[in-house]
Design a protein around this nucleic acid. Structure first.
Length: 435
RNA sequence: GGCAAGUUACCCAAGCGGCCAAAGGGAUCUGACUGUAAAUCAGACUGCAUCGCAUUCGGGGGUUCGAAUCCCUCACUUGCCA
């Protein structure tokens, strides 16, 4: 882990003004469902416990939805509890049932590769030092050696099909015309198995996850109770949605990834900055370690002077720094300050412009490159036809000047003999480098 | 294993031999208004291109001047029966 990352971790803390951790979690809106709340409250206020949260490698990176879990894990760790970060080397091979459609299976090689990426990401948000150091586990370690017979005899006997059918994700699929494969149907058993294994190996007594995973969380709670006779717990965090009900964490239909190769710090900063007024306070509670006093101050400021966007600015700075570090975030802010709006880009010096452009998707060009093609090359549009349409609609700007002719060449619109800035709409920027 | 129904663009969903690049809704994008907010209104939304052309309606094959629409076959899904 880098020095910067460990420094960031050491600066985090829970809000000591709350009587206990549970109260803070409730205030932050992190508890949507749980097993017995009174017992959990006492458990979290008492001696250190071991808890876990699992992340399945269904993509090469975690995304903002996973960040909720990572930060919840960190909050528990800050309260002295011991985190187990589980990466689903085996569950990722199966895929949890989504309510809409059957998943396409990824190859073993792909999943194994993604496990590595996810482990690195999970590690960044937890401390691996001290009495309650975090530990990474991979469920492939105990699932792979298990034979089908062992699985059916030792684990399957504890599961009632009637109960399994009632889980939301399963019943949703059964009631759709999509159906569900036996593979995905079995997923909940695998996840239950994890909780039992971690209970046995580490005395793990709590699992956290998204509320959409509630069926899988209780699967483990039930198995531990039946097989080991022990009472263990689960917390389901609310699904983060925007005030208008749309899915959170997507920009232009794409997920906001934690991997800077997939979503640049600039793009993530912009995502946070564009948070609705109605959502910004909720986001601050979930995605930052700011204390209640500070968040309430921001809430008042947002209510009084929403146009200042103070909440969004603090959220964007804080949350982006959590993921990408302060340096990258400050660079993203500098890039936005330099490039945003209607300002004259020629006023920027070459060094500022260059570092700003580094934060953006870029394409190489020559003086006779057409603007339409560059729109495609930079990923601002997906085809020449779309580029033409965007230009016809007046939505394309070269160096902040509206492009009116779709046959236009970059020509002499070059800054410092090397750069140009292409913009689609108000907010989507890309850099052009002259080769 | 038997019978029936179904598979349409990112999602839902019409179309049921030519008038279909394919209705409608959602999502998304752009413009106007704004605060890089929301709401609202307008436009766009397969690709390449000067009214044109090419490729799409689960896969493959066929009938026809012509098919998303009819036939055969394969795959998958759902329901009922066993």
């Amino acid at each position: 882990m880098s020095a910067a990352a460990s420094e960031a971790l050491s600066s985090q803390s829970n809000d000591a003004t709350f009587p206990d951790l549970w109260s803070e979690l409730e205030w932050r809106g992190l508890v949507h469902v749980s097993t017995n709340p009174d017992e959990l409250k006492a458990l979290l206020a008492g001696e250190p416990i071991t808890y876990y949260c699992g992340f399945d490698p269904t993509a090469p990176s975690l995304h903002l939805g996973n960040l909720v879990q990572l930060l919840l894990m960190r909050r528990l760790q800050l309260a002295g509890h011991k985190p187990l970060g589980l990466v689903g080397g085996s569950t990722g091979l199966i895929g949890d049932p989504r309510p809409t459609a059957e998943r396409t299976l990824n190859t073993r090689e792909t999943v194994a590769e993604w496990v590595g990426y996810l482990e690195a990401q999970v590690s960044r948000f937890l401390s691996f030092e001290g009495d309650n150091a975090a530990r990474l586990v991979n469920n492939l370690d105990w699932t792979a050696p298990m034979s089908a017979i062992d699985f059916l005899r030792d684990i399957g006997k504890y599961y009632r099909v009637g109960t399994m059918l009632k889980k939301d994700a399963v019943s949703a699929r059964l009631n759709s015309d999509e159906g569900i494969s036996y593979t995905e149907f079995s997923y909940q058993i695998l996840q239950g198995l994890d909780f039992r294994q971690l209970y046995l190996d580490y005395g793990c007594v709590l699992q956290t996850g998204g509320s959409d995973q509630w069926g899988n969380l209780t699967s483990g709670v039930d198995l531990v109770k039946r097989a080991e006779g022990a009472a263990v717990h689960a917390i389901g965090t609310p699904l983060i949605t925007n005030s208008d009900g749309r899915k959170f964490g997507k920009s232009e239909g794409n997920a906001i990834w934690l991997d800077s190769e997939l979503t640049s710090p600039y793009a993530m900063y912009q995502f946070w900055l564009n948070t609705d007024d109605a959502d910004v306070v909720d986001r601050l509670k979930v995605f930052t370690f700011l204390d209640r006093h500070e968040i309430e101050r921001i809430e008042a400021a947002v209510a009084a002077e929403p146009f200042k966007r103070e909440g969004q600015r603090i959220l964007a700075l804080t949350a982006t720094s959590l993921v990408h570090g302060e340096d990258a975030t400050l660079a993203a802010i500098a890039a936005a300050d330099a490039l945003f709006g209607q300002g004259d880009l020629r006023a920027l010096d070459a060094a500022t412009l260059e570092s700003a452009i580094e934060a953006l998707p870029t394409a190489n060009a020559s003086r006779d490159s057409g603007v339409s093609q560059l729109l495609v090359d930079t990923g601002l549009v997906s085809s020449l036809g779309e580029a033409r349409r965007a230009i016809a609609q007046g939505g394309v700007y070269l160096n902040n000047a509206k492009v009116v002719d779709d046959g236009m060449l970059v020509g002499t619109n070059i800054l410092h003999d090397r750069f140009a800035v292409l913009r689609r709409g108000k907010k989507t920027l890309a850099g052009i480098r002259l080769s």
